Deep mutational scan, measured.
Amino acid sequence: YHPGVFRGDKWSCCHQKEKTGQGCDKTR
């Protein structure tokens, strides 16, 4: 789950560079 959006080459919430990554918050 990603609370942010994928912008450019990373997520705005956790700056992960993998769009298919696990995400940053799994509580939702």
Rank of each mutant, 00 (worst) to 15 (best):
W11T: 09
Q16T: 08
K26L: 12
V5Q: 09
G8D: 14
Y1L: 01
Y1C: 04
T27F: 05
R7L: 03
T20K: 10
K26M: 15
Q16N: 13
K26R: 08
R7Y: 03
C24M: 09
P3V: 05
C13Y: 01
Q16D: 12
T27L: 11
Q22D: 03
K17V: 09
Q22A: 06
Q22E: 09
G8E: 15
G4P: 05
T27I: 11
E18D: 11
Q22L: 04
R7V: 15
Q22V: 10
K10F: 08
R7Q: 11
G8L: 09
R28W: 03
W11C: 06
D25A: 08
G8I: 06
Q16K: 13
K17H: 13
G21P: 02
G21V: 11
C13D: 03
F6D: 11
C24N: 10
R28S: 14
K17E: 13
Y1K: 05
K17N: 08
K17Q: 14
V5C: 07
H2Q: 00
Q16I: 11
W11G: 06
P3F: 10
Y1E: 14
S12R: 00
G8Q: 15
C13M: 12
E18A: 09
G8C: 07
H2K: 01
Y1V: 05
H2M: 00
Y1Q: 04
H15D: 15
P3G: 03
K10I: 03
E18G: 10
K17W: 10
W11H: 04
P3E: 08
K17A: 10
D9I: 01
H15P: 03
R28Q: 14
D25W: 04
V5S: 13
C24T: 00
K10L: 03
Q16L: 08
F6R: 04
G4F: 07
Q16F: 02
Q22M: 10
T27R: 13
C13S: 03
P3I: 09
F6C: 06
D25P: 09
K19M: 14
R28L: 13
K26W: 08
W11E: 02
D9A: 10
D25R: 08
G4H: 01
K19C: 05
W11I: 02
R28K: 11
G8F: 06
D9G: 14
K17M: 15
K26H: 04
D25V: 14
W11S: 04
D9L: 07
G21T: 10
C24I: 02
P3R: 08
Q16R: 08
S12Q: 15
Y1P: 00
G4S: 04
C24P: 03
T27N: 13
D9Y: 04
D25L: 08
C13K: 00
K19Y: 01
C13V: 03
E18F: 05
G21D: 13
H15I: 00
G21L: 07
D25G: 12
E18V: 08
H2N: 09
T20G: 12
G8K: 13
T20A: 13
R7W: 01
D25Q: 07
T20Q: 11
G8V: 05
Q16S: 10
R7H: 04
T20D: 15
K10S: 01
D25F: 12
P3A: 04
S12N: 01
T20F: 10
H15S: 09
H15A: 05
C14M: 06
S12V: 02
G21S: 11
Q16H: 04
P3N: 10
H2V: 01
C14L: 00
W11Q: 04
R7C: 05
K19V: 04
H2R: 00
K10R: 09
C14Y: 05
F6G: 02
H15M: 15
K19T: 13
D9E: 15
G4M: 04
K17P: 13
G21W: 01
K17G: 11
F6Q: 11
H15W: 03
V5D: 13
Y1R: 12
K17T: 13
V5A: 13
V5Y: 07
F6Y: 13
D9Q: 14
V5N: 13
Y1I: 10
H2G: 00
R28V: 12
S12Y: 02
H15Q: 11
C14K: 08
V5T: 15
H15L: 08
Y1T: 08
S12L: 02
E18T: 02
G4Q: 06
F6P: 07
G4L: 00
H15Y: 08
T27G: 12
S12T: 04
R7S: 08
P3D: 15
Q22W: 02
K26T: 14
G4E: 07
G4C: 05
V5K: 15
C14I: 01
C13I: 00
Q22H: 13
E18L: 05
E18P: 05
Y1S: 08
C24V: 02
C24F: 02
T27H: 12
T20W: 07
Y1N: 02
P3L: 12
H2T: 03
Q16C: 09
G4R: 02
K19E: 15
D25T: 09
R28M: 15
Y1D: 00
G21Y: 07
W11F: 09
P3W: 06
T27V: 09
K17R: 11
C13P: 08
R28F: 11
Q16G: 13
Q16A: 13
R7K: 10
K10N: 08
H2E: 00
S12G: 04
P3H: 04
H15N: 06
G8W: 01
K10V: 12
R28Y: 11
K19G: 07
Y1H: 09
V5M: 15
T20H: 09
T27A: 14
D9W: 06
C14D: 14
H15E: 13
Q16P: 01
K26N: 08
R7I: 12
H2L: 03
C24W: 00
C24E: 08
